[in-house]
Design a protein around this nucleic acid. Structure first.
Length: 578
RNA sequence: GCGCUCUUAGCUCAGCAGGAUAGAGCAACAGCCUUCUAAGCUGUGGGUCGGGCGUUCGAAUCGCCCAGAGCGCGCCA
């Protein structure tokens, strides 16, 4: 028996298709669109009929007839133009669920050829405060990182810090403008640093001299000016501390804290390679690589700017080389919003021309921007962007309202309560983001991140907490989980839902789409709630039934915890109430 | 101007290698706590899938056209 119910159905279907001489490509089931008629359906006959110009119902009937000799279905029918509807036997479902409940990985498979994946997400900048615009990349990247690891790939995540461009010259320039020199830099904290940067931004916008100064300082910094370098190191380390704190709160983690500055040396090598291969040329004072002009015009990639500084595209190209040579990357995946689509098309093309990443798969996962109600990138009422810090605090204070005060519940002091507050608030925030499909942007509504009802992270945490509570009671009463028997619709539906676990995770992995997991976790929790409401567990009619329901509940809990873990969300043992 | 993306219920979104009655959540309304945590459950109402044309036995899904929105287009990253 295949541990996975769906795979077993597909295998059986393949056998039948083969026997009938049909293309096995179409031998697969999907969850039925008509739960009133079946659990699974196969639409292969329709596709085949079109290709072979035959009657779909005849093909479907032949398949259905062959399927009859197997012992998994309670009922197989051909309906409509040629749908094959399969209603499974209860014990067939129960056996599979029993089996995965005993499996260490809950029946989940791994990829056939594990490889080394470098994930590039986060991309925060030195001297800039982290705001809600940084949420998506970090949260999605973390989820993908966990999913990839889970399916067996060797993952290295890199924050790719923005620490080397013109903003560095701008901020140093601003400090010199105010202090005359850089002597006070070692005493500046992160608030002061971001403040300097804000002012630099304004001044550089208005004042050409400031711009020129910034660009000159940047070039000298990159050239190795010791005074600048020393000041820059302080700015960088203060910023990194702040960034780490932000990510830590959100449980977003990185294996590497490489920055653009780390690629500086390699940038020089890339320029050399480009020259040797005759790919680069000087144009308007800059050293560029022209790209293929196919259907649409693509601007060239600027390696070296006319002021002598390295362009940021060069940095990205150099980073690819480093990741391949030093990390052994076989796949590099970037997560940025859609505005950088063209940028990565250019980078990937140049990387290919240069031949620095042969047999390495480069992917750019695009996600939509976080927008305000006006459809434009989110701003707060006063025109600024909301900081991550403020968002988290807002959600936390909302959570605190619904929890008991420290000391009100035995065994829960301030620290314990605050831990719960944070777990729930962060779940609300992360799930709110992860439930949206990556590609589409979403509208940022502050209140959504402090909602705990309906399709939210806390809803799922709550389901887990309820199961934990049942399991504790069962342990007290010496009731043990045992063989699953499916008596009611609610049990059956929950079991069927559980059987989808593996295919959902594999789909999320293949399409780099955590929202599949978020969506599934939610509907699974929903199935459980319905079951929980309709089927008494501890007070079930018989001991066998209680044991079965207990196993079903425990498995649901384990699956939910695993899913939340893949999303980077914690599951508290209990959900206390005020 | 050129290119990319998007438009589905009052709001926020799923559904899209064409398939049977287009789904959730929120909001609205009506029920359910002396029984395993009501952050829950059950039910009701709500959609000419932006518009048009085409391909097809069949289109929210594929193609073309139009309208509206967002984003991007050599020295900011």
């Amino acid at each position: 028996m295949n541990l996975l119910l769906e795979n077993e159905l597909n295998e059986t279907l393949s056998k039948v298709f083969k026997k009938l001489g049909l293309d096995e490509k179409f031998a697969f089931v999907k969850i039925s669109d008509r739960p009133d008629l079946s659990d699974f359906q196969c639409n292969g006959a329709l596709a085949l009929a079109k290709i072979e110009h035959k009657n779909p119902r005849e093909i479907a009937s032949a398949i259905a007839q062959e399927l009859e000799q197997y012992d998994f279905a309670e009922n197989i029918t051909v309906d409509g133009p040629g749908f094959i509807n399969i209603k499974l036997k209860n014990n067939f479902i129960a056996e599979h669920i029993d089996a995965i409940s005993k499996d260490r990985r809950l029946g989940c498979g791994k990829v056939e050829n594990p490889h080394k994946v470098v994930l590039d997400y986060g991309g925060p900048n030195v001297a800039k405060e982290m705001h809600v615009g940084h949420l998506r990349s970090g949260v999605i990247g973390e989820a993908i990182s966990r999913i990839e690891r889970f399916v067996g790939n060797d993952v290295i995540s890199d924050v790719h810090l923005g620490d080397w461009g013109t903003p560095m010259g701008m901020i140093l320039g601003e400090i010199i403008f105010k202090d005359k020199d850089l002597s006070k830099v070692p005493f500046y904290n992160i608030t002061q640093i971001t403040d300097f940067y804000k002012r630099a931004n304004i001044r550089c916008k208005e004042n050409e001299e400031a711009r020129k100064a910034a660009s000159k300082i940047t070039a000298e910094l990159q050239d190795g000016n010791l005074e600048y370098k020393k000041a820059w190191l302080h700015l960088r380390s203060e910023s990194v501390d702040a960034i780490k704190y932000n990510y830590q709160q959100l449980d977003v983690n990185f294996d590497l804290w490489w920055g653009e500055s780390d690629a500086h040396k390699t940038c020089g090598e890339i320029v050399k390679i480009a020259r040797q291969q005759g790919l680069s040329e000087i144009d308007e004072g800059a050293e560029i690589i022209r790209l293929e002009q196919t259907n649409k015009p693509k601007p060239p990639v600027i390696l070296v700017k006319s002021d002598g500084g390295f362009g940021y595209q060069l940095t990205d190209i150099a980073t690819v080389k480093m990741r391949v040579e030093q990390l052994g990357a076989q796949e590099i995946v970037y997560f940025t919003d859609s505005r950088q689509t063209l940028h990565f098309e250019q980078i990937f093309e140049v990387v290919k021309k240069l031949g620095i990443a042969q047999n390495v798969e480069l992917k750019h996962i695009v996600f939509g921007t976080v927008n305000g109600a006006d459809g434009k990138p989110f701003k707060t009422r006063d025109g600024g962007v909301m900081t991550l810090e403020a968002l988290i605090e807002m959600s936390k204070s909302k959570v605190r309202e619904s929890l008991p005060k420290p000391g009100e519940v035995k065994g829960y002091d301030r620290a314990e309560i605050e831990k719960l507050v944070s777990q729930i608030a962060v779940a609300a925030i992360k799930f709110q983001d992860l439930k949206n499909s990556i590609a589409s942007g979403y509208v940022f509504d502050l209140e959504d991140f402090a909602k705990f009802e309906g399709k939210t992270g806390p809803y799922i945490q709550y389901a887990i907490a309820r199961i934990n509570s049942v399991l504790r009671k069962a342990a007290e009463n010496g009731l043990k989980a045992d063989k699953i028997v499916l008596c009611s619709d609610e049990e059956r539906n929950l079991a069927l839902k559980l059987s989808q676990l593996n295919s959902v995770i594999m789909r999320a992995h293949n399409e780099k789409e955590p929202s599949f997991i978020a969506d599934y976790a939610y509907t699974l929790a929903q199935c459980f709630s319905t079951f929980y409401n309709a089927c008494p567990i501890m007070n079930a009619k018989s001991r066998e039934l209680a044991a079965s329901r207990l196993r079903l509940s425990k498995l649901t809990r384990d699956v939910l915890i695993m899913l939340l873990n893949l999303l980077g969300i914690e599951a508290p043992e209990v959900m206390l109430k005020a």
